[in-house]
Nucleic acid binder design. Structure first.
Lengths: 233, 233, 233, 233
DNA sequence: AATGAATGAGATTTCATTCAT
DNA sequence: GATGAATGAAATCTCATTCAT
């Protein structure tokens, strides 16, 4: 019986290896430019072997996206408390984003690969596709939307704000900024500087933009998290 | 005597036809996926003929993009008055966006193709490249940034707002939303609905988010322009 | 009636213009690389116009070859006297080669274009081909062969020498050396230096190689003609 | 245990097959005219397969050429003794030429393709190029030049003979004759007849032409090797 | 007579995917 | 389970040649 387990484990490791290599290449060249041949070469496997683990390039890339999404959600879940206020939740969301980004490239990967989540990227409606893989799309989306909804109920956000739309916008923004950051620099560390300045500023603007008139702006200010981001671990 | 002119016109029409077909395909499939063969087929021309009008695929796509950019800027310029306030300018910017979009797909094209062009398009100054085409990128960017700066001077926007960053963010947002809208629906008319709801909402949130505390929100409200957009001229 | 003549003349001028441009391009890039489009551009004519003067690229290039051949033959004829000895004739042949080369690029053109004289280049058997053009091949070839034959009769060349073969070899050599010279340098002036050293040396070796044993070597020595070549007239 | 070896062998055979087909086509049409498609068709493989064995057309042709060069040099080396006189060496050179040619088309290929390769092949030292292939050009050139030098030292060749130039000439001549022979006939067997007559005659003339005055002509005579050539092993 | 415009045919090269071993 | 080998289909681009005007 130990043999079966070992085989299982080895198989998972192989799969992880492939994904790791694919991610590295996506970071280096952008998702569009990566070919199966390159992934195989980097993983020191044959192209044919890749197809044992993923039925197609499309599916491989989708799985990578999805896995990256789960990492982020998992981290957020582990820190989020049910009773948190909307503002605290959003600030935590921001913190998690920074944390995960500091620790791994998943966030970059996630947002760099929108073409593999088409046609309804980013993570809105696609829950199950022909490949039988269920995406974390709705979860991420729903999570944020619930926070916005809570904010409206708490009277912190404007009543005329459309939670679905704002959620969409927030995710879009994150995605866009990552994309720009990734494209203009090379290493994750370099990405950091550009990225966090812009991200934090934008997040704050959105916060202010959806906040009800009269809400004190000090409550709508994000703590600088750059220090955290720069010290991965 | 009219012969030369007619020939000129016919040539321009052919070029326009090619561009039209290319745009349609870009809207349907995204810029990356479109091949010269498909464009030729759609235009009912041979591949070789395409190369008479554009020396390479790269150049064709750049020209399409740049042309679209100029259309937008031209329209804005024709309506913009020097003495306009920052808020009025931004509102006009929004109106132009809607107008141009209502009349053609240019804006969609413009933003849908940014990736294809240059990593940080349209945020980076690319005035002249090896193809000899000058891009309107910096103009667009500068235009918006000047409006933001004016707003800060007028005391309408927060002093701590970074004009360059906000400009970047605004363009990113527009770009992103267009992209999402285009990808999730089929016809330009359908795009319209999603698009304007989201765009207008986001634009308004940004406006509120960068406005100084105490600025009356009624001043930060965009008129609904959907009617205009839906009745193309 | 003057009109017809003028037309005739203009036509001839146009044709000459085309040939001139084609030659220039052949010298610059080598015959293989030159395209009809380039020739048309250089001549400031349309590609279609080229086809009014030459039914195909093949025919144009053949005509160029043939014309170049005639120039050389014409010059040789004008200086050759019927009573000349074989050795004097060959020396004259050499002198003409140098002269024509000094004055024009025809010799280079001629030998640079062997592919358009296939399959029996250089100038051996092809007298009439499908295009109806008769080549000066046999004339050139025959001229040399007659000189060799005379030399044998005079007892200057070995009896076991095969005139046809030697002729073939001589022409091959000229062709080869031109080719190498042309390929390794750029301007005709530069070609000169390399070219004449090698050519003269080789010509002399052949002369000695075919001469009868006992013929005094001083008779088999070519005067240096480099000065002549360098001062184009 | 034999599996790996068999695979290795099969791979080598495939590569050899491709080269064989390519050579045949080069002989039929000349190097410039042969396309990857034709080679693939002749080898009954897909074009893509060709690219498994050769990264580009350029590289394929270079490899063919270089391999042929090595074959020739190898054969010469195996028969050449250090103490040989210049005349014996040159005669051996000639014999090897005939031998290799009798057994394969390599020599023809070698010389027929020089144009395709590099302007002054095989006269210029090209030891390592961007494709990482080292060429035997200089070796061949040097080998002959050393023989000529020895001959001068032995007092068999004229003191005023320039070894580099003569080497250049010899190779040019061989190259030229092969080319002509190949172009004027169809089958390799037919090539043979033309080829050897001319080659032998020319070789002998050169020998006589560079020999010192007074050297007995019987020493400068090549044995007829046609019989050997016609009976391929 | 001249040409602008068009094109068919074909060039080289890439890549996701399959299959026999 | 792993892979080397093969490939079909498609990509971009070129060029000699034709034809309506």
């Amino acid at each position: 019986m130990g043999i079966a387990e070992r085989k299982e484990r080895e198989k998972a490791e192989r799969k992880a290896l492939i994904i790791r290599c694919a991610k590295a290449l996506i970071l280096e060249q952008g998702a569009e430019a990566v070919s199966m041949g390159e992934i195989a070469e980097r993983a020191e496997l044959s192209k044919a072997t890749l197809y044992l683990y993923f039925h197609s390039k499309d599916i491989m890339f989708k799985e990578i996206c999805i896995e990256a999404g789960f990492q982020f959600i998992k981290h957020f879940r582990s820190l989020h408390k049910p009773h948190m206020s909307a503002l605290d939740s959003l600030k935590l969301f921001w913190k998690c984003y920074v944390d995960v980004f500091g620790k791994s490239d998943d966030v970059i990967i996630l947002f760099n690969m929108k073409q593999w989540l088409t046609p309804n990227y980013p993570f809105i409606f696609v829950d199950e596709d022909e490949s039988g893989i269920s995406a974390p799309s709705f979860e991420l989306f729903d999570m944020i939307r619930n926070i916005i909804k809570t904010g409206i109920e708490e009277g912190v956000f404007e009543r005329d704000v459309n939670p679905t739309l704002i959620t969409h916008t927030l995710i879009s923004l994150f995605s866009m900024i990552v994309e720009n950051a990734v494209k203009s620099v090379k290493t994750p560390q370099e990405v950091g500087a550009l990225f966090f300045d812009e991200m934090q500023s934008v997040f704050q603007i959105i916060l202010r933009g959806i906040a009800r008139e009269g809400i004190d702006r000090s409550r709508l200010t994000l703590e600088s998290v750059r220090g955290t981001a720069q010290s991965p671990g």
